[in-house]
Each structure stands twice: as structure tokens, then as C-alpha cells.
Design a protein around this nucleic acid. Structure first.
Length: 568
RNA sequence: CGGGGCGUGGCGCAGUUUGGUAGCGCGUCUGAUUUGGGAUCAGAAGGCCGCAGGUUCAAAUCCUGUCGCCCCGACCA
């Protein structure tokens, strides 16, 4: 492609709306433009990248036995009501009506459709297992779309659904997908980690997320350097340190005056005791009932764990009015002692001795409080977020944290949807059985953004070769010099003949502009034809991720490029 | 949904407090000189100041409404 013909409107200045680097670069490099909040138009360069990602995904899905289909974006209300999610999905679902006032949704996901389809067409154990997938636009009316493609309201996703006879079959399908996903991210050329994830309310006992590592990632991962353990902090189990329980040295509980001290930090400053010897008390409303949660002062509650322990549908923090009514004290002076709501205690609190907590009276706290003696929790369970320095639940070594962008998620659905939508097959004994399902997603457009987020420098994007919009860009330094133009044209044609995806920057621009643009759009290999090297009948070859400039004999350039592409 | 901010040529912004002929930089177009990291000079085009009302002799500026966009929050007391 000749640059003069290529539609890639680059910007010198950073668009003010873009917050993170991938968003800025994708706009600046002329890959996309915003159409509406969280909705983007992909320009030719981005579309090429998307197609490459899609193709890698497609090949690996096919290799794993998947068959591609294409389901509609627009989905009837009816099937969502059957699965019960028409009401459950809430405001995140785009809803619309047709002229007959019938309800539809723009599909945020496709379990309903595919299960209905399979229910209609699969009747016998002979028809299973079945792996069906699609690459399709999805729609979620996010509360707050942000970070460009990272959290859009329209996005492209690959979703595969597995249908099996039983749990054992599901295990096989799941492992196939796990393997295929690893192959995909290896081929994409991105640094990633597979982490154990929360399968949440969906049910099923196994779930993994595929995380592209990046500073700006929205997910925090804990991982062990010694063994393979890695998990989303939302899921990571928090074990207790191996140290012996403290010797019993319980002291008499004392009430202390703490005027105006509300936060844990206030109390650390005021009492001189570290946050790890304080207890914080959080009040939640779970399915309408007020509950208290206690944690060490330096820990964070994990709401997902709490929700799992409480077995509730609906969970949110209580407002101060509600709390004051029930507890005679406001936030900041709450504590477990004498509290008339059920207490859910984090594991660690049992280890604490003589800790400090609110006295359920404004401006007063207790110190030397002890669990068991001064109050008794309803349940003691793992309720907090994992942190760096926690011990690995597998091998006991300290854990580290790192941030990642969730680009893939696989989980076992079991029979949740097949039960709800009555998708069954007839087994060898003539009995109807629920089909056992799994569901496996990859955010295609998000993967594009994640790649930029991970691979960039001050000059622009650095595409991995496997997904670069073009592999090579040829820049004649001065397109008024016939010998340069001629040499550039020669290489351009030769590379095209070899099937290399190449841009010839034939624009009437100064060298600086062409270099800047080449760096910005992130083409992996750059061939420069300039007067100095051309005199020796050589071209300069530079890798985008490398400073080194190689002088290559004109006759060897094509082979050199082919070798480089092959070896990376 | 709460809080904050912003809508002024394609992009980035100033002008709004104190109403009085709409500006700057980048980009675009023409010409010349240039040509190894976002050139220089000369000239030019391009904006009913988000939209709709209102106040006023006069509104980008004041008032009301509305739409859109961005940021923070909506969990750690």
C-alpha cells in the first residue's frame, strides 16, 4: 500500500479526551475515531489489526474443534425472560422495541440464543460434544465507558460455547480451550498470565482469566514466583501466615475517648498503634438485612467473597442513616463489641489480640478487645482481598502483585442455562439429560487496545509482528531524488511479490514527518533509503523495538526481511 | 445516579469575571525556497462560539432549558 493512498489521519497533538496511552495512541496514529461515548469507528489500520487477531483466534478455535457460526446482535426479549436475565441484567442491557411494541435487546452476550438453538437441534447423545463459536459485536451500556476500546459500549468479542454430555466431557472441552487460549496469546506476541478467577454467581467450580500485563490494567493479580500460582485478587485465597498463634496475653478492655477520630489512619496517628492492630467494621445490607463485617485495619474487604459467604443476591454498603438508627453510632465509631447485628469476621481477626475498634458510641473506641471474649462473630471466613506479601496458598512463599488487562475468560457453566432453557439430550438409556455447558470469551477489540497498552514507547505504538497492520514500511528520505524513489519502488514490488505486507511512504513529506509517522503507527520493520547508504547500494533496516540500524545490500534486503519476519 | 469540568475553524486552546466587529498555535490550500527526525518565507481559505429560548440598542460572554463529551465517585468509614 502506498502511504499517499492510505487513510491514516495522524494527529500531532494528544486528543484531550484520551486518558490512557492506548486510547491516545490509537487516536493519534489514525486507527480509530470516536462515534459516540464508548463507540468507535475503526479505520483501515485498526481493522487490519482486528482481522489479524480474529484470524489467530479463529485458527486456534478451529484447531480445537470449534465451528464458527454467527448469531444476531438483536435478540428477542422472550428468550431473556426464559433464562430470567431480562430483569437480572439491569441497565447494562441496551433495550429497544420494534414497531409492534415487542421487546428486544442488543446482545451483551449470547448464552440465551445459542442454548435455544442447541435445544432445538441437538437431541441425542450422539450429537455431543459440540463446540460453537462466533466473532461478533456485543453491546453493554456501561455506567461509564472509559479508556477508549478498553471499556466500550460496543465491542468485538469471540465467544465459544461448549456442549457436553456430562462434567467429564466439560472438563475435556475446558482443557481444550485453556490450551487454545494459551496458543492464541503466545501467537499474539503479548506478555500475559493465566489466573484463577472468580466464577461468581454463574456457578461452576473452575474459571480462568487471561490477563495481558500492563501498568494501567484494571485488574490486580497476585502471583507466586516460586510456583505457578496466580490469581485475580478477587479470587485469591488468603491463608493465614504460618506463625504460631500468639500466646494468650489478653488484657482488660478499656474504653478510650477519641474525639473526631474517624478513619483507621486517624486512629493510627491518635493511638500510636499500627493499622494491623486495629479492627475496622463495615456495615452492609444483604438482601435487606443489615450485617457487620470486621477486618484488620490495613485490609480491604472483598465483596465477592462476602457475597459468597452470605449467599445473598443483593449486597451494598449501608448508608450512615441506617447504621446510626440501628447502632447508635456513626461510621468511624463502629465496632463488634455489643453490636446488635450479625458479625462476619475475616480469618485474620481471630489471630489478633488486644486490638482497637469502635465502641458504638460517637467519639469513643475500645482497646484491648479480644474476639471470643468480648464478642462472638456469626461466621469467621476469608473475606479480604489478597495483597502483595501474603503467602502463596500453594507453596507458602510470599506473593507479588501485578496489574493486568482481562482479555480472555473461560468458565464452566454447568447446566445453568440448559436447565433454564430446557436444553436436553437423550442418553443411551433413553433418559433426558441436561446438556453441560461451558463458555469461553476473548475480547478482540480489547486485545487490540491491550496490545498497544503493553507495547509502546514515547514515539508511538510498537506492534508485535503477528498483529501489525503492515509488517514493513519503506521510506525514501527524499522522494524528489529519482534514485531513492527507484530503489524504494524496487524493494516495494519485490516485497509485495513475496507476500510481505508493506507500506511505501511515497508522500511528498520531509524525512522527519515520515519517520515520526512510521514510529507512531508502529510498523515493526522500517527500511530507509537515503543518499548515504544508497551510494554503497545499501538500504537501512531498523526494527521498531530496537535502536540498531542495519545496513543491508540492496539485493539482500528482501531475504533479510523475510528472515526477520520468520524468526521473530 | 451523585460531584466536578468542558463544548469557540480538522486538532489543541485563549477570549466569558467587567456584553461592544471572534483570536492564537498546529493542521489545510497556493507559490517559492527547502529535504536524514513533525522545515522556512509569503499569501489564502475555514467558525451563525453545541442546540433552543430569553434579557439587551447590542450576547461566545448574562439568564433558563436542553443535548453531548470528559474526569472523579458510587466499597474500606
Amino acid at each position: 500500500m502506498k502511504a499517499s493512498q492510505l487513510f491514516f489521519p495522524t494527529l500531532r497533538e494528544v486528543p484531550s479526551e484520551a486518558e490512557i496511552i492506548s486510547h491516545q495512541l490509537l487516536l493519534r496514529a489514525g486507527f480509530m475515531r470516536k462515534t459516540s461515548a464508548g463507540v468507535y469507528t475503526y479505520l483501515p489500520m485498526a481493522l487490519r489489526v482486528l482481522k489479524k487477531i480474529e484470524n489467530i483466534v479463529r485458527e486456534e478455535m478451529d484447531k480445537a474443534g470449534g465451528q464458527e457460526i454467527l448469531m444476531p446482535i438483536i435478540q428477542p426479549q422472550e428468550i431473556w425472560e426464559k433464562s430470567g436475565r431480562w430483569s437480572l441484567y439491569g441497565n447494562e442491557m441496551f433495550r429497544l422495541k420494534d414497531r409492534h411494541d415487542r421487546g428486544f435487546a442488543l446482545g451483551p452476550t449470547h448464552e440465551e440464543i445459542i442454548t435455544t438453538l442447541v435445544d432445538g437441534e441437538v437431541h441425542s447423545y450422539r450429537d455431543l460434544p459440540l463446540l460453537l463459536y462466533q466473532i461478533q459485536n456485543k453491546y453493554r451500556d456501561e455506567i461509564r465507558p472509559r479508556f477508549g476500546l478498553m471499556r466500550g459500549r460496543e465491542f468485538i468479542m469471540k465467544d465459544l460455547y461448549s456442549f457436553d454430555l456430562d462434567e467429564a466431557g466439560l472438563d475435556v472441552s475446558y482443557k481444550k480451550m485453556y490450551k487454545a487460549y494459551k496458543a492464541i496469546y503466545d501467537r499474539l506476541g503479548l506478555d500475559y498470565r493465566v489466573v484463577e478467577a472468580d466464577s461468581g454467581a454463574i456457578g461452576g467450580n473452575e474459571s480462568h482469566e487471561f490477563m495481558v500485563l500492563a501498568e494501567s490494567g484494571e485488574s490486580v493479580i497476585v502471583y507466586c514466583q516460586k510456583c505457578d500460582y496466580a490469581a485475580n485478587v478477587e479470587k485469591a485465597e488468603c491463608g493465614l501466615e504460618k506463625q504460631e498463634p500468639p500466646v494468650n496475653n489478653q488484657q482488660e478492655m478499656i474504653k478510650i475517648s477519641t474525639p473526631g477520630q474517624r478513619t483507621i489512619q486517624d486512629l493510627v496517628d491518635f493511638t500510636g498503634r499500627p493499622a494491623s492492630e486495629q479492627i475496622k467494621t463495615l456495615m452492609y445490607v444483604a438482601d435487606g438485612e443489615l450485617v457487620a463485617v470486621i477486618l484488620r485495619g490495613d485490609r480491604e474487604l472483598n465483596e465477592i467473597k462476602l457475597k459468597n459467604v452470605l449467599q445473598c443476591q443483593d449486597l451494598f454498603m449501608a448508608d450512615e442513616m441506617t447504621v446510626r438508627e440501628k447502632c447508635q453510632a456513626g461510621f468511624g465509631s463502629l465496632g463488634p463489641v455489643g453490636l446488635n447485628v450479625p458479625i462476619y469476621a475475616d480469618l485474620e481477626t481471630e489471630r489478633l489480640q488486644n486490638f482497637t475498634c469502635g465502641a458504638n458510641e460517637d467519639d469513643y473506641h475500645f482497646t484491648n478487645v479480644n474476639l471470643g471474649r468480648d464478642f462472638v462473630p456469626e461466621i469467621i471466613a476469608d473475606l479480604r482481598n489478597a495483597e502483595a506479601g501474603d503467602i502463596c496458598p500453594v507453596c507458602g512463599e510470599p506473593l507479588y502483585t501485578i496489574r493486568g488487562i482481562e482479555v480472555g475468560h473461560i468458565f464452566k457453566l454447568g447446566t445453568k442455562y440448559s436447565d433454564a432453557l430446557d436444553a436436553t439430550y437423550r442418553d443411551q438409556n433413553g433418559q433426558d439429560q441436561a446438556i453441560v455447558m461451558g463458555c469461553y470469551g476473548i475480547g478482540i477489540s480489547r486485545t487490540l487496545a491491550a496490545a498497544v497498552e503493553q507495547k509502546n514507547d514515547a514515539d508511538g505504538i510498537i506492534w508485535p509482528l503477528a498483529i501489525a497492520p503492515y509488517q514493513v514500511i519503506i521510506i525514501p528520505v527524499n522522494n524528489k531524488k529519482d534514485d531513492q524513489v527507484e530503489a524504494a519502488n524496487y524493494l516495494y514490488k519485490e516485497l509485495l511479490n513475496q507476500g510481505v505486507e508493506v507500506i511505501l511512504d511515497d508522500r511528498d513529506e520531509r524525512a522527519g514527518v515520515k519517520f515520526k509517522d512510521a514510529d507512531l503507527i508502529g510498523i515493526p520493520l522500517r527500511i530507509t533509503i537515503g543518499p548515504k547508504s544508497l551510494q554503497e547500494n545499501k538500504a537501512e533496516v531498523k526494527k521498531r523495538w530496537d535502536e540498531e540500524i542495519l545496513l543491508v545490500e540492496m539485493d539482500h534486503v528482501v531475504q533479510h526481511v523475510l528472515d526477520t519476519i520468520k524468526n521473530v
